[in-house]
């Protein structure tokens, strides 16, 4: 048999090379695309909102308190006499930037912990898992209140506290995926080729669970947004007069009692629309990433 020529070419079917691409919107359906469009609009407003806002947040005249929509003020005025539409446009920035900080920080922490746990296994995995379980027991809002008490109330403090509170949740989900991926044989083949663990993780393991990472991040964004709004509502997040949807819900409550719910309703509606869009998109991305996992 060794007499057989070693260079017999094998016929194969010619197919178009498949495109891998970044985890896009493929397979998320109409709902996914609509949600993505809503989010894109929200992010756009967060970026250019201050340019669009016809009035500033500090242009207050108490004589306009609770005045309804007029020709120049499409949504009317808040209880303090500021332009409601302008406040919504200005508030988008901190309302979206806050959750974004939470998501990025929590994902980085969560991914690093998950990968170390999955790769090292054994005692390292057990210790990290116990630490994560202890952190898991702390509600995010409680941790944020503690942080605000120690470091002073601000958006950054609240966001970082929430990130730490959410990281175990992310780490737990990703650890399972990373362990599954780690045990696949191509990883062993890469090890035999003499690559370092970090290189294999960065180039192969993390990209191969990126679908799940993106999906988890999207779902987390929704939670973080609601929690940050709640923290701002109780006065420990964004500080007035900096505009923020969570702050607006809080400041509007006196209006609700007096029969003028416009401010709370409008800000609450903005939060709900963004959170629902994010969650629907996240669920679809998550389903897709699990469908594609072999």
């Amino acid at each position: 048999m060794s007499a057989m020529p070693a260079t017999t070419p094998i016929e194969t079917v010619d197919r178009e090379p498949s495109v891998r691409g970044l985890p896009g919107l493929r397979g998320t359906g109409i709902v996914g695309h609509v949600c993505a469009a809503i989010l894109a609009l929200a992010v756009l407003i967060a970026i250019v909102g201050p340019l669009l806002a016809p009035y500033s947040a500090t242009e207050i005249s108490l004589s306009n308190s609770f005045v309804g929509p007029t020709g120049d003020h499409y949504l009317g005025f808040t209880g303090q006499g500021a332009d409601l539409l302008s406040l919504l446009l200005l508030g988008a920035r901190s309302s979206i930037l806050g959750p974004l900080i939470v998501v990025v920080a929590a994902m980085v922490l969560g991914v690093v912990v998950a990968i170390i746990s999955a790769w090292r296994g054994g005692i390292v995995d057990q210790v990290l898992s116990v630490i994560m379980d202890v952190l898991f027991a702390f509600p995010g809002i409680l941790l944020a209140i503690l942080a605000a008490a120690v470091f002073g109330a601000s958006l950054q403090t609240a966001a970082i506290a929430l990130a730490i509170a959410y990281a175990p949740y992310i780490a737990r989900v990703l650890r399972a995926a990373a362990i599954r991926e780690r045990s696949r044989e191509y990883i062993a083949a890469l090890e035999v080729q003499g690559f370092s663990a970090w290189l294999i993780c960065l180039r192969h393991l993390v990209p191969n669970i990126s679908g799940l990472i993106v999906a988890q991040g999207t779902i987390l964004f929704g939670y973080a947004m609601v929690d940050l709004a709640a923290i701002s509502y109780i006065g420990l997040g964004v500080q007035p007069p900096q505009p923020d949807w969570g702050v607006m819900v809080a400041q509007g409550q006196s209006g609700v009692l007096q029969g003028y719910p416009a401010e709370s309703l409008a800000a609450g509606l903005c939060i709900i629309i963004v959170v629902v869009a994010v969650n629907l998109l996240g669920e679809r991305l998550n389903a897709r990433s699990q469908g594609s996992a072999r």
Binding site: R20, E185, A188, A189, V192, Q193
Partner: peptide
């Protein structure tokens, strides 16, 4: 050391990163 050895496995498809 691992760079001085190489391994060919039973199932090639399982031993290559599919993406």
């Amino acid at each position: 050391y691992r760079r001085r050895i190489a391994m060919v496995f039973q199932d090639p498809r399982a031993h290559v990163n599919p993406v």
